[in-house]
Amino acid sequence: MQNSSHTDERHLSDPERLREDLELARGVLGKQEAAIERFAERSKCIPRILATQNARLGRPLNEHDIADLAQDTLIVVWCKLDEFEGRAALESWVYRICYLELMNAIRKKKRLPHLVEELPELASAAHRERPAPHECEDIYRGFEILEAQEVNVIRLKHFDELTFDEVAARLEISANTAKTRYYRGLSKLHDFLRNRNEDGRESLAR
């Protein structure tokens, strides 16, 4: 059976789709009943993303945990909905929130000693084909300190795999501006990650 979030076959960054997603978010904030009904269906992506990611991480959380976490994540999504700018599809925007909430939940559970052995993928960063979960998490956390326009360029470059000319056309800026924003964002992210790693090493040494 095809589910509702799967019926839209357009690319996640299709500009028309992004406009529709932004209108949807505004409709929900504006308490429009039709928008709320559509959002109710679209919000099913929250437990779906959580379940998918949880499975990829070796199921550190059980089904009951995921159902509870989905409710908590929905509240986070709802509270942040006024920050949604339609720069990425609603599901992509929700994905990042889900990912960070999932990692927090796993970390909480990991504090229980008997669960440490159950998280082999988290304990090892040896999966070089895919970045380790904590590396993805660090990058998403790093995005929070960047300016939105820097994240947008980075996202279009690496998620949509556009050239700088295409990024520039999409954002209606010059290619030079796109490159400057990209480099500035990359540099900030680099510094953030380096500081984060140094802090991590220091706390391990203590």
């Binding site: 059976m1 589910n3 979030s5 799967h6 996640l12 919000s43 099913k44 992506c45 929250i46 437990p47 779906r48 993303i49 959580l50 379940a51 998918t52 990611q53 990829r56 089904e63 009951h64 995921i66 159902a67 509870d68 976490l69 989905a70 409710q71 929905l74 599901e91 992509s92 994905y95 990042r96 895919r130 970045p131 590396e135 993805c136 990058i139 998403y140 980075i154 996202r155 470059k157 690496h158 998620f159 795999e161």
Partner: peptide, 27 residues
């Protein structure tokens, strides 16, 4: 970054094909 977004794309595609995730109806 490319690898992280590749994981995200794959995960979104996989999630879009999923039905009856735990807590879906409740959300």
């Amino acid at each position: 970054l490319s690898a992280t977004f590749r994981v995200e794309r794959d995960a979104l595609a996989e999630a879009a094909g999923l039905t009856d995730a735990p807590g879906e109806a409740a959300v």
